[in-house]
Design a protein around this nucleic acid. Sequence first.
DNA 1: CTAAACCAGAGACCTTGTCG
DNA 2: CGACAAGGTCTCTGGTTTAG
Length: 370
Amino acid sequence: MGWECQTPNCNFKKVPAHTLIPAVSLREPFWPLTASYTLSRDTHVPFIKLNVSFAHNYRINQFMIPGIDGFITHLIANKTVLEEPGGPDDMFEAIQRNDIGLRRRSLGSGVTKGDSYTRHFLVNYGMPYKFIAATASSSFEGAASPITDTRSRLNWAAKFLLAQEQGKSVEEIAEEWKSKEFNEVLALGYFENQRINYHDDGEYGLGPTIATLSLGAPGTMRIRMKAKHHHGVSSAGIYDNDAPMPGCAAYEARLAMHPELQALQQSDSKAYKIRLKQIPKELKLKRSGQARDAITMTLGHGDIMVMHGAELQKYYEHSVDHTGKLRFALTCRYIDPESLEPQDKPTYEVKPDMGEYDGAKLGVEAMGTE
DNA sequence: CTAAACCAGAGACCTTGTCG
DNA sequence: CGACAAGGTCTCTGGTTTAG
């Protein structure tokens, strides 16, 4: 891989030598990694609730956002997870050795003449993600092992967390999960100083659960309320009529007037529209600026992050930036095949996850036989 | 000690097809 | 008709560091 000139009839290519970054070089001297539970570097604002638990070699930070039905969970991996055969260490090196198809892709809706390209490198496997050009999607059949292994690993993590949250057994959850299991893996590659700006993953046709496996240098994921919902007013000066969320500007006042406003929407749409323009002035809501980051997570090598809940994507947005030289993020989603336009449908069959990864089995023999 | 230099963060602007 | 767009670049601003 390298550079390819896009000018017609120009065959210029520049392919620099690749230097493998070994997984052991990811170990941080002042951040010791052992078979015990790894420490957390996550922070959050007071209105967010944090539950910490420990299971299957992960420190589990579960963040609950008041008013939002769902959760954000960060599973922090320890040394046992990283060094497991086929685990994060092996995956990190395998992705560097094999061309899994990571490329800069054209942004469909460019605002400039000619194409504009993403800063990071990406490739999609399984059900096509509509944000990405259809040509950037490949079948799971014949995909490199880190891709299919990630799908299986994240299916396990999602089932485990949903079971924990709903107080059900993993077997019970597995039954419900089967029909809506992750059917897409989006691989992103980041070099130094490449970041992905604030956005949400709430597009039409996506399941409520999204999971990401981090490989390589740590990434910093920030979660904040969207400005419109935080300020309560759009950039055009129209009041945001969605239910106010705890932690937003003028929360009490907005909460108090919400039922009345909804009733007005039903009874008198004209008066309602006028009211939407009045409220921002009455409450002195400001349009500019952004909400503070509610949660900041340091996603280390081998860590898994799971977001669950459609409301989370509606009210909150997230960004990721990177401190190190090389990081891969492998994200799984469920994409409803019916949500795809005919031309976006895959030309291959997206088969069920054949992997049977079970993180609960890891390290059990070592501990059990002592 | 003062002022220039530096830096990070945020906002404005760029500019165009699509969507409701 | 206005809002929107996993974006990029420039400029301004306020705070901190450094040079003289």
